[in-house]
Design a protein around this nucleic acid. Sequence first.
DNA 1: CGGCCGATTATCT
DNA 2: GATAATCGGCCGG
Length: 200
Amino acid sequence: MPILPREFYSRSALEVAKDLLGCNLVRIQTGIRMAGIICEVEAYQGEEDLGCHAHVGRTRRNEVMFGPPGHAYVYFTYGMHWMLNIVTEREGFAAAVLIRSIHPSEGIKLMAENRPFHAFKKDWLNGPAKICQAIGLDGSFNGLDLCDPNGQVFIESGKKIILQDIVATPRIGLNTVPEPWRSIPWRFEIPGNHFQENYG
DNA sequence: CGGCCGATTATCT
DNA sequence: GATAATCGGCCGG
């Protein structure tokens, strides 16, 4: 499957988020290819969005989000977790899509080694920090260009998910974010059981 | 399975 | 000095 080009990411985070469902997140670590089908994402867009890191304006942490689309915004939180986001929209407009869960498809053995004591337990890959741990991503990947075919991280197009199969709900963990941003349904997912029955 | 809570530190005010 | 786009262990049902 072809690598998603820059134009794919040069759209609103809401569109990109939904279109990323069903696509294949690929990570090559020490020459070994790991991949997973994206099945849960969240959109964050603009300084108006009080749930988006960019709402405070440009800072050292969020500056990648203000940059060109198709790059990785990897940030650190809760003192121990890394999160992977994909930058969207045009340069100068801060927007990104958080990858929240994947259905592992390739290199599962290496993913398991990257998550010792948790591999193959229930829910071992449904969470943004779990994914980064499983595919070996940290802050050194912040700003990485995902459109570089020779890169170690990129996304390939996959099965097209029809809108009817996508469930939209509020974004997770925005406990102190004011309404309406706290509850706006910008989290998109392919329900787990549905995914396994129809897309696994 | 669901709810509660402590861990742990870069980044921002 | 406070906060955080989370996780995993522990507990009760």
